[in-house]
Design a protein around this nucleic acid. Structure first.
Lengths: 226, 226
DNA sequence: GTCTATAAATAGATAGAC
DNA sequence: GTCTATCTATTTATAGAC
């Protein structure tokens, strides 16, 4: 299925980045933590691995992603993956960490007039997914949630915490928590089909068109007048 | 993680079912094809494997399911899996075959008055998922679609063909095909969160409550008056 | 921190006896 | 049709040199 020979040279190319140059280190870590100069023994390797892991997991899921592949993508030695993150499982759990942008965007969208909140939620959600820096983590979570228990648990937490806190006071009345979980369901289902399953014409549709129609659907669950 | 010893005895128990009894055969295959008597050399083994495969794939996905595990579940020898189905991939493709019930239920639900079609679609979809004989195949498809290309393709086909044919003439007006794909998205997303990700309180909610609220969401996309 | 080498387990697939 | 035995590749993970 896959030739063995084509993974041979990649190993070599990783070496160029291996040196701990002061420049690389200075440009990296949380710059506020330590006064100037380089932190001895710290390189970008650690975060390069996490980034690579996110991209690989996002693309192929947990099982089909080997630590070798992650190491290649990060251009580091495979043993370093274990050195920094221990088991594959624990690396995966850290790769699931979601960008704060999501919570922020949803919370902002939920504020304001009740009228149009459905459209604002859809737009906010799509904007986070359309951001290339946010997508790998989101993709990893949604792709893996179907099979991996921990990922599913994380998805549930995210859906509950993010939405529940943002929509408390917005979704009111009968069965408010049930309806809130339905709003989360709609947003996640939308992302799933538009970005993962690539269902057409939804996957290629203009953001505005999606917002317009799908926003109506959310609105009809957020606001219930009996 | 898993002890090696507890898979040892299962092998033995498979033998009881191995004989090709006339009763078993007669009770099995498509009964119309051959005049009475047993078809020589045909047993229930073949379909036992397919059933087992569906259950295993539904539970753990494509990658995490080994052929050995399927063989154990079906209580047959592992080599028989290859004998009947060739590669793991081709077995998987056959396990993805959906029950005709789905198409049927959706088509019936789409007929009739436009008023309430959203609720009818949700109820029909849930009824197929709540049927234990249909669920493994559906589960396999939805679970695997997140990662496995062929499964995703099948999901897209199903969504398009089943919904497009059932809803043509129901979803009309501007962006009809886009809105149809959104209806599919909502149904699949609902199943995903209720049956796979198990988001509460949605997962435990009464069918009627889900139908009532989620039906409104579908309705708002099926019917657009500008 | 980085790398080589390898252990230990498991996977899919095949050959061939019965 | 059924089963035993095995091949080959790949996986995660570790030990230890530098």
């Amino acid at each position: 299925m896959k030739s063995v020979s084509d993974m041979r040279e990649v190993r070599e190319s990783g070496r160029e980045q291996r040196g701990t140059t002061p420049e690389a280190t200075a440009a990296t870590g949380p710059a506020g933590k330590h006064a100037g100069g380089r932190r001895p023994g710290e390189t970008r390797t650690r975060e390069a691995i996490l980034d690579a892991a996110r991209r690989c997991f996002a693309e192929r899921g947990f099982d089909a992603t080997s630590l070798r592949r992650i190491a290649e993508t990060a251009e580091v030695d495979q043993a370093l993956v274990h050195h920094f993150y221990g088991t594959k499982e624990s690396l995966f759990l850290q790769a699931l960490e979601l960008p704060g942008r999501l919570q922020e965007a949803i919370t902002t969208a939920a504020r304001g007039e009740l009228d149009g909140v459905g459209e604002r939620l859809v737009r906010a959600h799509l904007s986070v997914w359309d951001d290339v820096s946010s997508r790998p983590a989101l993709m990893t979570m949604v792709r893996s949630a179907a099979i991996h228990r921990a990922a599913a648990a994380r998805l549930r937490e995210t859906a509950t915490e993010t939405l529940a806190s943002a929509l408390s006071g917005v979704v009111t009345g009968e069965d408010a928590t049930l309806r809130t979980s339905m709003v989360a369901t709609q947003l996640i289902g939308l992302a799933m089909m538009r970005y993962v399953a690539l269902l057409e014409p939804l996957a290629s549709a203009d953001t505005d068109a999606v917002v317009r129609y799908y926003g109506r659907a959310l609105q009809s669950i957020v606001v219930v007048e009996d």
